[in-house]
Amino acid sequence: MSDIITVSSASEPVQEPKINLLDFSQEKMVEFFLSIGEKKFRATQILKWIHHFGVSDFDEMTNVSKALKEKLKKIAEIRGPEVVNSLFSEDGTCKWIVRVASGSCVETVYIPEGKRGTLCVSSQAGCSLDCSFCSTGKQGFNSDLTVAEIIGQVWIAAKHLNNVPAKMDRSITNVVMMGMGEPLMNFDNVVDSMNLMMDDFGYGLSKRRVTLSTSGVVPALRKLGDVTDVSLAVSLHAPNDELRNVLVPINRKYPLAELLDAIDQYMSGLRDKRVVTIEYTMMAGINDQPEHVEQLIKLLKKVPCKINLIPFNPFPHSGYERPSGNAVRRFQESLQLAGFNVTVRKTRGDDIDAACGQLVGQVADKTRRSERYQSARQLSEA
């Protein structure tokens, strides 16, 4: 029998995907409008509609000509991540679970305190690092977020907060890149997103009110000072290399001496006298003992910093426990007696799993890390 050859009919022309304008910093928005034969001022005009007013429909842009609106509709769109769920804590904390293009979900948290409203933004679906005490890391890693998916979290939160009842009216005064993921492993998209946060035609935040938190990706941290001057926080969590190698495994590649040198380089490049925030998650019997505070004092004695102590927020099968209030207080007092500015982070939003280290989302893990973690859990329960 002869082979039968099937010839498919000609298909319809494939339509090019529309350009998502939420992906553009001011510089890239200018490039876009020049590329389609429009004036440069259109870039700032559209940026204001997107970020000042939260508009996603070109027809709502009242000072844009009809001809340009029709042109934009054919080639562009304004599309943020899909909001899958919104959760609200008794203490006023809000959490949004948003789905990104990979199909994974990430989490964004808003924490109100007095006149301050801090938005904690994710930079990756999952995390490319695997800090042993962080539930996010146990979910594995799927993908870096695009600019639209990072700044889209700010865009979504701003719109939602503008629509809450007047008695709960809140605004975003600070953004911290402390959500899911290691920001410096998604360098370009995070920098473009932070530029939009600080842009007058974006969210107009001060460089003092946008903070990038890193676990210590030293080469990227050295590069960071060439492109931005946002505030810096470093997830330290241990006062010596031996312990940090266990808690924050990237320390095996970039040990404390290299990290401290990179911090000094970045902070020395700032034009004002800001200090680095040192984040130190305290775990009972692990890094909260008198010898640890002595080592921390010695390690940081020449580093202009403030220290933020974070009592561990438990999650199932973590293997770590939260220290007692007395242990945290003694640790804080020892640091203060040594001359450090020390705060203890309040646990906020733990009733909706929005506290530090509890963000997990729904990650289509590409690393098999979550699979290995689940297997280890099952063995421990057997």
Rank of each mutant, 00 (worst) to 15 (best):
G357V: 01
D192C: 09
M194N: 03
D188V: 02
V248K: 06
S9W: 10
L335V: 08
E12Y: 14
I50Y: 04
G117L: 11
L309N: 00
S193P: 01
R208Q: 15
N251P: 01
K306D: 09
S375D: 13
Q139E: 14
L243H: 05
C127M: 02
K207H: 15
G80K: 12
I297F: 02
L243A: 09
Y320P: 03
V328L: 07
M180V: 06
C131A: 04
P316C: 04
E321C: 08
T108G: 00
P323C: 13
F88R: 15
L247A: 04
T108C: 11
G202I: 10
V342R: 05
K366E: 14
A382L: 13
R116A: 03
M282K: 06
S65D: 11
C120E: 09
V30K: 13
C131R: 01
V328Y: 10
S128E: 12
L236C: 06
V234R: 00
T93Y: 06
T62R: 10
N174K: 05
F32I: 07
Q374S: 12
S380Y: 10
K71P: 06
D229G: 06
G140Y: 02
G137E: 12
D200T: 15
S235C: 02
C131M: 02
D57V: 03
K346P: 05
V147L: 06
C94K: 12
A257T: 14
T281V: 15
F201T: 13
N20S: 03
R244I: 08
H237N: 15
E77W: 01
Q15W: 05
P183D: 11
I75G: 04
S193W: 01
R116L: 08
V83W: 03
G325A: 13
A101N: 15
K39G: 03
R348L: 13
G202T: 07
N240I: 01
G349W: 00
V230S: 00
R244W: 01
S25Q: 11
H317F: 13
S215A: 15
V100E: 11
E149I: 03
V64Q: 02
S215Y: 04
Y280N: 07
H317C: 05
R99F: 10
K48S: 11
P112D: 09
F340H: 07
